[in-house]
């Protein structure tokens, strides 16, 4: 690799381009499946995209491969410097929330790679979602570079770079159907084993109907919930989950009551109780956990939901398990 004078004694600048290879795409698929978590990284440091010169923009991103690839592929045909911060392979938004995509790391990198020797401008363009980890004022104070917050999404960068203005549209986080669908595979992968174990346990305990009820409730929480999120009534995640889980109960409860006419009245109540407590609780718990995967949940909101609903879930779960055991023990 060629060596600039400005590189001497500093970290080498790497070359990159806007092409996504099949290896990149495979890496993206694996990342979205949650396979090899934490391994989707690129080396932190400075990259040349195309043939940047002293007048080229400097864009900052995280060393998560999806973030880096989104940035470089969005900038096809542009010459720029890409400064990659070490966020331990975590995306910009989540890393900013934890402070790893932050003022300290940014200032350290800028000085380490000697950005000021390479460009004549004194502006760093950051993704807007990095703003919760970076204080623009402090960056200027500490390394002389001003921070400019670009659009939320990398695809809007070409439009943004024309006049360095972002429309309100570009500044707004969306969480539309496609965004929500992309999250489903990783959720499915991470809940697969617990679902299987729970299904097997219930199969032994209460038969295949109970097992498939539990699996359906999990399916509702992991797959249907993200899809239906904006259309479920109520505002908070958990009650939306209870609602969805309640809907899932209906066919099971109907089928169960139709097929076991010889159960006594008390056991019949217990059977219904088991369905109507366990399924909604399961779905609601998964729905509550989905908050962390969204850009629309606040900490106060989530804390409120935990305080309010987790005790309820615990009570319902115990009631449901006791009922299910009673049905299993006396209902045969």
């Amino acid at each position: 690799m060629e060596q600039d004078h400005s590189d001497v004694g500093r970290q080498q600048i790497q070359q990159t381009n806007s092409q996504l290879t099949w290896q990149n795409r495979l890496d993206h698929v694996l990342a979205r499946l949650g396979i090899r978590r934490g391994n989707h990284r690129v080396a932190p440091g400075l990259y040349r995209l195309g043939v940047p010169d002293a007048g080229s923009p400097v864009l900052v991103t995280a060393n998560y491969s999806l973030s880096f690839d989104a940035l470089r592929s969005a900038l096809a045909g542009h010459d720029a410097y890409l400064l990659v911060l070490d966020t331990n392979g975590v995306n910009v938004w989540c890393a900013a929330g934890k402070g790893t995509f932050g003022t300290d790391e940014l200032v350290r990198r800028v000085q380490q790679v000697g950005v000021s020797d390479l460009v004549s401008n004194r502006t760093l363009i950051l993704p807007q979602l990095g703003a919760s980890g970076v204080s623009a004022l402090e960056v200027r104070k500490r390394c002389g570079f001003g921070v400019e917050y670009g659009p939320v999404r990398a695809v809007d960068l070409p439009a943004y770079l024309k006049d360095h203005r972002a429309t309100p549209e570009m500044r707004q986080v969306r969480f539309d159907l496609v965004d929500r669908l992309t999250l489903i595979p990783v959720e499915v992968v991470s809940w697969f084993l617990p679902t299987l174990l729970l299904g097997a346990l219930l199969l032994l305990l209460g038969g295949w109907r109970l097992a498939s009820a539990a699996i359906s409730a999990m399916f509702a929480g992991v797959v249907l919930f993200p899809i239906l999120l904006p259309w479920l009534p109520t505002r908070d995640f958990t009650s939306k989950g209870f609602f969805l889980g309640g809907l899932m109960v209906v066919p099971f409860a109907a089928a169960a009551s139709a097929e076991s006419p010889d159960l006594g009245a008390l056991l019949r109540v217990a059977q219904m109780l088991a369905y109507f407590t366990l399924m909604p609780t399961l779905t609601a718990y998964l729905s509550l956990n989905f908050t962390g995967s969204t850009p629309v949940a606040s900490r106060t909101g989530v804390r409120y939901e935990i305080d309010r609903y987790v005790p309820v879930m615990a009570i319902l779960a115990v009631a449901g398990i006791v009922s299910a055991i009673a049905v299993a023990a006396f209902g045969r």
Binding site: N91, V92, C94, K98, S293
Partner: peptide, 29 residues
């Protein structure tokens, strides 16, 4: 809460942090 550590902020990393969250989409440039 379960592991009795401070709620994040900054310190705690749960497994989902590396992947599930928002790494979807080009949200995170």
């Amino acid at each position: 809460a379960l592991s009795r550590r401070k709620v994040p902020g900054a310190s705690l990393v749960v497994p989902c942090c590396t992947t599930s969250t928002l790494d979807g989409s080009a949200e995170c440039t």
